[in-house]
Each structure stands twice: as C-alpha cells, then as structure tokens.
C-alpha cells in the first residue's frame, strides 16, 4: 500500500503544523486580550494604537504578511528562522481578529455593571479583572473556538515560506509520486483530525470558563 509509506513524512509535517498552530493561538490570544482591552479601556493614544494594529493586520493578506516578514524584514537586518517567522505572522493575524472578539464582548457587558462597580468604589483594574472580564470571557469563547480552527487552516500558508508543515510535506510527496488523490486526501483527513481535536479542546476550555465564571445562565429579568 503506497499510502502507508507517505504517513511518516506527513505525520512529521502534522507535528510542525500543530506546533505552529498552538503557539500562534497562545501568543495570538495574548495579543488579542492586550489589544481588545486597550480598545475599550485605554486612553485615546493607546486605543488608537490598538485600532491601527487590528485594522492593518485584518485588512492585509496573511500570505503577503508572511512574505513580508520572511523576505522583506531581513533587508532591514531582522531575520528569523522560518518557523519563528511563521508563528509571528500567524500570531499577529490571530491577535488582530481576536482583539475584535475581546472588544465586542467587553463592550457588551452592561453599563449597569460598571456603574455598580463604581458605586462600590472599585478601581479600574479591579472592575476590569473581577467584574467585566469574567462576564465577557464566557461570551468570547464560541468565537475564539472558531478562530482557533481558522488558525489551524491558515497555518498551511507557512508552507510557502519553506516551512515543512503538513501542506509542504504533501506537496513534496505529490511532486515525487504524482499520486495527487491519495496524498491530498490524506492531508485533508490530517487537517480534519487536528481540527477535531482542537474543537474538542476549545469545548473543554469553554466549559471550564463557564464553570469558573459559575453563573447559571437563567432567564434574566
């Protein structure tokens, strides 16, 4: 069976894909919270800066961003290895989309909650961390789940900056064997299995967050 001989190489590629995806989701989430919180809570300068970041990275192609980081940045003396470049590029992209999720959920916390916090004399940080974020984060989770899976699929673009991820391996095998149907079917199955795992993981995190936030979502008067 030919396809069995493809598996070791594809599995190695899948590991690279998994690593890049997970690292980008983690760094991207940190960026998303930083930029999203800056948009809602920051002063004019800080929130404008965050807005610029979000719009620039949402408004340009990820592939071109990766090319820019990989081919143009070294010209000004900054060069990273391909995997780092891939993770940086994807993280910035995820962070930009994620910041909109964070901003939206934070803004959706009722004004009355902030007023109650103010009446109890909470400071701004305490209001954000203990009152607003715990309520907002529950609302963010489904959208973050989507974004995580999107990140996995977008990660295939890093094959174009010479990273040997799953897509890259698939291309290489196909170029040698010309067995397109088998190779690409296996590749699709590989992505699907990984996204399945990711989906389950996000569900689990969502459930943990919901339990951590603890409130039963009963009908609200």
């Amino acid at each position: 069976m030919d396809w069995l001989t493809y598996l070791p190489s594809l599995a190695q590629g899948a590991l690279v894909t998994a690593w890049i995806t997970l690292a980008s989701i983690a760094i991207g989430a940190a960026l998303a919270f930083a930029a999203g919180i800056a948009r809602v809570e920051g002063g004019r300068a800080v929130s404008t800066l965050a807005l610029c970041y979000t719009e620039v990275f949402r408004g340009t192609s990820l592939l071109v961003q990766l090319f820019w980081l990989y081919y143009a940045l070294p010209l000004v003396g900054l060069s990273f290895d391909p995997v780092t470049t891939g993770i940086v590029g994807l993280s910035l992209h995820v962070g930009a989309y994620g910041s909109e999720i964070v901003r939206g959920a934070l803004s959706a916390v009722p004004v009355a909650q902030r007023e109650a916090a103010r009446a109890l004399n909470f400071g701004r940080v305490h209001t954000l961390v203990r009152i607003c974020l715990p309520q907002a984060i529950v609302e963010m989770m489904p959208a973050f789940g989507n974004l995580a899976i999107e990140t996995l699929k977008l990660s295939s673009l890093v094959s174009l900056i010479s990273i040997a991820d799953l897509t890259f391996r698939a291309q290489s095998i196909r170029n040698i064997t010309l067995d397109s149907a088998t190779v690409y079917t296996l590749t699709l199955v590989g992505y699907f299995l990984m996204s399945l795992v990711l989906m389950l993981a996000m569900r689990l995190i969502e459930r943990m967050v919901r339990r951590g936030a603890a409130f039963p979502r009963a009908a609200h008067a």
Binding site: A112, Q113, E115, A116, A119, L120, P134, Q135, F215, A221
Partner: peptide, 17 residues
C-alpha cells in the same frame, strides 16, 4: 465615593458571583 452607597433600580448584582 467612600461616603456614599447606591441601590439601583435594576439591582445590578454581579451575576458571576
């Protein structure tokens, strides 16, 4: 604010606590 407290029309309790 340390001298004042307020009770709101719609209670505004923290739902997650």
């Amino acid at each position: 604010r340390s001298h004042v407290g307020m009770v709101f029309q719609s209670f505004n309790l923290f739902p997650h606590m």
